[in-house]
Design a protein around this nucleic acid. Structure first.
Length: 579
RNA sequence: GCGCCCGUAGCUCAGUCGGAUAGAGCAACGGCCUUCUAAGCCGUAGGCCAUAGGUUCGAAUCCUAUCGGGCGCGCCA
């Protein structure tokens, strides 16, 4: 059930009856205040502007043609031409009863499933995952889960960076160590960070090392067996590391989803040849470049997009073009979604332009780069730890669980040790994920231990707690899974909860359209909050509650619990029976 | 220099294809546990939506300029 969609359709029908175009914007929104009902239709005012007529009069005509028989118990025109709709309790109750016996919680099934390629997480191999990888990983995963729930065919792609200059650098460093007689076993691959830092330092400071590194990149990309063997060492270690983290984070990415840069290697020369044939790329200062007039500065200087380096090496631009070809033509994607930080916005704009011109992206494939801001410290300056490094993701998660455990022990003394461990893990990880998922900002965001590890207010533990409260009541009520009762919406708290419960699909549609899980976070927090209000105001199992009312409230509770669980599951956050 | 993103309560953020009196959480203050889990609930206080113009019935939202922050601009990803 999508109430907004339903009201929009009804309004559009009324517009047509008035002789207005079918695509006139109905502008249906949730009412801003309780006295304005549940939904408001604002389309009459904009339409009146177009027609140059009186908005209030048009709203009246619109209302006369609007058939909300049985759906609304009150409709009224207010202000300059708002139409306020108060939904009928009987209708809400009936819809709720239908939704409650549905395995999909009343969410309709996608009638036109799409193939969606989602590119997310993308850790850099040979570098341990740090907090900066959190956003892409968990936002991508939440969107993927939501798309799948809706019914799209999702292809996860973990575009690991494993093929560029940095790898040449690591191999060059490793080669030197081996040449100096260090045994392969002793090379500290386990501590990739240190190894990477050493190599990077040499790359920046040591004469000749950078050139040597670039040579290794060319060798690697042209398939040299020895280089590939060394490269494989780094891959294996890194993949193992990120797999562990995905498991801890409850992220659905697996080994099978890894589609690293190297996977496109065989396509790269073909892309270059093709760009030359199509006269899109030209030689400039020794490199091969596509000049984009579309992104020219105001003096008319085109934006350069290097596709092949001096010396023949390929770059991530080449790889991303190949990825377009593969995803759009081979995988037949209708939509490609890429989650990376905003610094790469220009790059992806260039990739799309070139890919469209060269035909690597079909017209039918949409290409959505979903950016997010740079991570800042609590001082508002670019984030660095005291030692100038980054916070390791594994460290953050560990800290989260430790802190959660302390709180769990303090608040829930009746749990067994095993339960404490489990609850602490779910609460700690959930808190970290929710803190990040609930923010929409495309602008920079602040990394703060306290914000990440907060267990009060609009946090995952709040939602998990709401869930356990409902579950506790349902246990006490001693009812089975098939419990069904008539829904009676009498108190205001019951009605508000009911309306919110029926807004799930509306929310999911928006999350999918904008690739923004924070909308789902907001929804679930509001749902939990309304449940808490209902819980405090409307007794269920207490003395003096009429059986019919008790059963209706149990129905609301069962449905709210299922909704919370489902919603959190789409966010990749686990629930528990007690906490 | 040019370009992109951003500026909303003391703090962290919602709200931005124009809609009614701008919302939450944290922090502060005041209430609520012999009764379904107080990680909770109810209430109070807190705002020139960076600034200045413009567009119109109506602007946090759209346009222009200025200030402030971040990022990006030919061989890193």
């Amino acid at each position: 059930m999508n109430i907004k969609h339903l009201l929009t359709e009804k309004t559009q029908a009324a517009f047509i009856a008035l002789g207005l175009p079918a695509d006139t914007n109905a502008a249906v929104t949730v009412s801003t205040k309780p006295e304005f009902g549940d939904y408001q239709i604002n389309g009459a005012m904009a339409a009146a502007k177009l027609l140059k007529t009186n908005p209030r009069q048009l709203a009246e005509q619109l209302l006369a043609h609007l058939s909300l028989e049985g759906i609304a118990e009150k409709t009224e025109i207010a202000g300059p031409g708002f139409i306020n709709v108060t939904l009928a309790k009987s209708w809400l109750a009936a819809e709720l009863e239908t939704a409650a016996i549905d395995t999909r919680l009343g969410v309709s099934t996608n009638v036109t499933p799409q193939t969606v390629v989602v590119d997310y997480s993308a850790p850099n191999l040979a570098k341990e995952m740090h907090v900066g990888h959190l956003r892409s990983t968990i936002i991508g995963d939440a969107v993927v889960r939501t798309l799948e729930f809706w019914g799209d065919k999702v292809i996860r792609q973990n575009h690991m960076g494993d093929w560029g200059t940095q790898f040449g650098m690591l191999i060059a460093h490793l080669e030197d160590k081996l040449a100096a007689g260090v045994d392969l076993e002793q090379v500290a691959l386990a501590d990739l960070e240190d190894f990477y830092r050493e190599a990077k330092k040499r790359f920046d400071d040591e004469a000749g090392f950078a050139d040597k590194s670039r040579d290794y990149v060319v060798q690697l990309q042209s398939g040299d067996a020895h280089c590939k063997k060394l490269w494989q060492l780094f891959i294996d270690t890194s993949v193992k590391h990120s797999e562990e983290l995905y498991k801890k984070l409850n992220v659905t990415l697996t080994n099978a989803d890894i589609k690293p840069e190297s996977a496109y290697n065989d396509m790269l020369q073909g892309i270059i040849d093709d760009l030359k044939t199509k006269a899109l790329a030209e030689e400039s200062m020794g490199a091969l470049v596509v000049f984009l007039q579309e992104l020219a500065d105001k003096d008319g200087n085109p934006s350069p997009f290097i596709v092949q380096k001096t010396g023949g090496g390929f770059l991530y631009s080449t790889t991303d073009l190949a990825a377009c070809q593969y995803r759009s033509h081979t995988l037949n994607a209708d939509r490609i979604i890429i989650f990376t930080d905003a610094r790469q916005a220009l790059h992806f704009k260039q990739v799309e332009l070139v890919a469209r011109k060269a035909g690597y992206l079909r017209d039918a494939t949409s290409y959505d780069h979903c950016p997010f801001g740079t991570m800042m410290g609590e001082d508002g300056k670019p984030f660095k730890t005291r030692t100038g490094g980054t916070v390791k993701l594994a460290e953050l998660l560990e800290e989260a669980v430790v802190r959660a455990k302390a709180v769990v022990k303090e608040k829930a003394s009746d749990l067994t040790d095993t339960e404490v461990e489990e609850v602490a893990r779910k609460v700690g990880i959930g808190a970290v994920k929710f803190a990040d998922l609930s923010k929409n900002r495309t602008s920079d965001y602040i990394f703060s231990w306290n914000a990440m590890l907060s267990f009060e207010g609009a946090t995952a533990p709040y939602l998990q707690y709401a869930y356990t409260r409902v579950r506790s009541i349902l246990r006490r009520a001693d009812i089975n899974d098939n419990f069904v009762a008539k829904v009676l919406l009498v108190d205001e708290q019951e009605k508000q909860l009911a309306v919110k419960l029926l807004r799930f699909e509306e929310t999911l549609a928006q999350v999918i359209k904008d690739a923004q899980p924070n909308l789902l976070c907001n929804y679930l927090y509001e749902l939990a909050s309304l449940y808490m209000t209902f819980y405090e105001a409307c007794p269920i199992l207490k003395e003096g509650v009429e059986p019919a009312q008790r059963d209706s409230r149990l129905m609301l509770s069962i449905f709210a619990a299922r909704m919370l669980k489902q919603g959190l599951e789409l966010l990749g956050i686990e629930t528990m029976e007690r906490m």
